[in-house]
Design a protein around this nucleic acid. Structure first.
Length: 565
RNA sequence: UGAGGUGUGGCCAAGCGGUAAGGCACCGGGUUUUGGUCUCGGUAUUCCCAGGUUCGAAUCCUGGCACCUCAGCCA
């Protein structure tokens, strides 16, 4: 993977290098990516996937894919499949190391028993509300549960009966006996097991008690022989508990938890809960809507795994809360596609051009380079006829300064074809709208150059009027108008910042005939416009293209400056 | 007012006592049959602030300040 050369070092690699130097873990590196199957993966997960699998690759270790499926109420097999697909699509392979936290339920139960026997865990019969009250606050210590000093025998009996289904949800929980006065709330006798009389998507009805994250995660890591358990910053407060459980049980394998800052991307959201809202409320068409920051959305939009991996390498890994500019992601996909996307001509907002000195039924084929960045990409033929379409933006009746496209009396190059000169403008008498531009062509400029060395200011893309294909093109913009839609005042709602123009559908676009029958997922550069990807919605005779990203547009900048004076 | 973290250019991010890497963005020049690509050049006398140690501090010490996380039987 070429993009790996761009990787800079980071504090996690420093830690691992130090560990290897000290022969900790016999020099092995085992990481894991532990998604909960309760939603689709997004670009923030991609950061974690690239980190964990990337480290494993780099240090010749392994990275486990482990589904953290301890809460059957929220989880579903649908998500398991999508997560596997996304990880694979990103280019990573967990090999034999596919696990489910639920695979470890039996051993977890044994560990809980052990803790009880050590007097380090007890069955608490306080209600959820009471537990909250007893917990104290951020600044005040908590109070010990009246059930805290039940005998080991009583605890064993109660826990056994919890497992046997003798109690209802919420009647009892198993808690660790740690310190109700700890400044760290997660050490104030945290819940280890709760009763949930629901069917689990993998273990069926075998269990009616399910272990909590804190209990499950560290032990699963330990059971699987993970060496470096990398997670996001919000788990920093949980690390003492992670360590306490492993230490108290005397686990041989004690992975090191390391926290890094999660990815935030401007103009979008990374919260699974909020993304689910967008889907359920119909603000987007689904998890794979091309505007979504999900892996499936980016995939449908046309992003490549290479570009996403490159992005993840460039953003770095650190502990500082940060917000990465969307322009970096856009840069990565442009850079990737510039090298490999075939060039093609397409007109999004067609304006008819009639070449008045060209034969009425004349057709000829001009040669076009498939990719000037790739010598092996070859050439193709494009039909040229008397009636053509150019982009409406490429003609101005009254051109501003520095506009060097078509205008009355001006000569421009039609790429790969001829120089044409605008002779006449036909307008709608009522509206004044330009309906057609009549031009002459210079037969001596075939191929788009002139022997006399004459310079033309502009080169336009074009398409034959009757030898082009009608198509639909979907243009995308930021989902939100606010750079950080999660930064909202109380009472405000991120939905208030949804961008009404995040999707623009163009239905009368014309694309060159070579695009007929393009397969969904194929990517192209539409010359002078941007990179586009064939959407699965495409019909037999109506291809649909998603704009992945526009080309950089320095004319747009100039024009903006002119307008601003 | 508890505990744990974090502060380096517009956005990321190296830096680990020897005098501020790199990328994105931005600005300018060149090349160009994509106003794309490519290419050349510019952009922090300064690292949250204030003291201190040192020949020398973004890096060490002290004291402030700002921001983030934690009071689920979620993860």
């Amino acid at each position: 993977m070429a993009e790996e050369s761009l990787k800079v070092t980071n504090f996690i690699r420093d830690i691992i290098n130090e560990d290897i130097k000290n022969n900790k873990n016999n020099g092995n590196v085992v990481t894991r990516f532990p998604p909960e199957p309760n939603g689709y993966l997004h670009i923030g997960h991609a950061k974690s996937i690239c980190l964990n699998f990337g480290l494993a690759e780099e240090y010749k270790g392994r990275c486990h894919l482990r589904f953290d499926d301890t809460n059957p109420v929220k989880e579903d097999v649908e998500y398991i499949e999508s997560i596997k697909e996304d990880v694979k699509w990103l280019g990573f392979d967990w090999g034999e190391d596919l696990y489910f936290a639920s695979d470890h339920f039996d051993r977890l139960y044994e560990f809980a028993l052990e803790l009880i026997k050590m007097g380090k865990a007890y069955v608490c019969s306080l209600s959820a509300d009471q537990i909250r009250e007893y917990r104290g606050t951020l600044t005040e210590p908590g109070k010990e549960s009246p059930y805290r000093n039940r005998t080991i025998e009583e605890n064993l009996d109660l826990f056994e009966r919890m497992k046997a289904g003798e109690f209802n949800d919420g009647e009892h929980v198993l808690r660790a006996k740690i310190d109700m006065c700890s400044g760290n709330l997660s050490m104030r006798d945290p819940t280890l097991y709760r009763i949930r009389k629901v069917r689990h998507h993998r273990t069926g009805n075998k269990w009616c008690i399910y272990p909590m994250y804190d209990f499950t995660h560290c032990l699963s890591d330990s059971i699987e022989g993970v060496t470096h358990s990398i997670c996001t910053l919000e788990f920093e407060n949980n690390r003492p508990l992670y360590d306490w459980i492993l230490d108290t049980l005397g686990m041989d394998c004690h992975p090191q938890q390391i926290e890094f800052a999660r990815l935030n991307l401007s103009y979008t959201l990374m919260s699974k809960r909020k993304l689910l809202e967008l889907v359920e409320e119909g603000h987007v068409t689904g998890w794979d809507d091309p505007r979504m920051p999900t892996i499936s959305g980016l995939r449908r939009r046309g992003y490549t795994p290479e570009a996403i991996r490159d992005f993840c390498g460039r953003i770095g890994v650190a502990k500082r809360d940060s917000m990465v500019d969307l322009s970096l992601l856009e840069h990565c996909i442009r850079e990737d596609l510039n090298k490999r996307a075939p060039r093609v001509m397409a007109v999004l907002n067609p304006l008819k051009v009639v070449i008045i000195n060209y034969p009425v039924d004349g057709v000829e084929e001009v040669d076009a380079l498939n990719n000037p960045e790739d010598a092996d990409a070859g050439k193709r033929k494009i039909p040229f006829t008397r009636e053509l379409y150019i982009e409406r933006d490429d003609f101005r009746e009254d051109p501003p300064k520095k506009f060097f496209r078509l205008a009355p009396g001006r000569e421009v190059r039609l790429k790969y074809a001829y120089y044409i000169k605008c002779e006449e403008v036909i307008k709608d008498k009522e509206t004044g709208e330009v309906m057609e531009v009549r031009c002459t062509y210079d037969p001596e400029t075939r191929g788009g150059w002139s022997e006399d060395g004459r310079k033309v200011k502009g080169t336009l893309h074009w398409v034959s009027a009757d030898r082009s294909i009608e198509s639909e093109v979907r243009l995308y913009d930021h989902l939100f108008t606010k750079e950080d839609p999660s930064d909202i005042a109380e009472g405000d709602d991120c939905r208030n910042y949804l961008n009404p123009d995040s999707l623009t559908v163009l239905r009368s676009c014309r694309v060159e005939p070579s695009l007929a029958g393009s397969l969904p997922g194929s990517r192209f550069q539409f010359e002078r416009l941007g990179y586009f990807c064939v959407d699965p919605d495409s019909g037999e005779n109506m291809p649909v293209f998603n704009r992945i990203v526009s080309l950089r547009d320095s004319w747009a900048k100039i024009e903006k400056k002119i307008k601003e004076g």
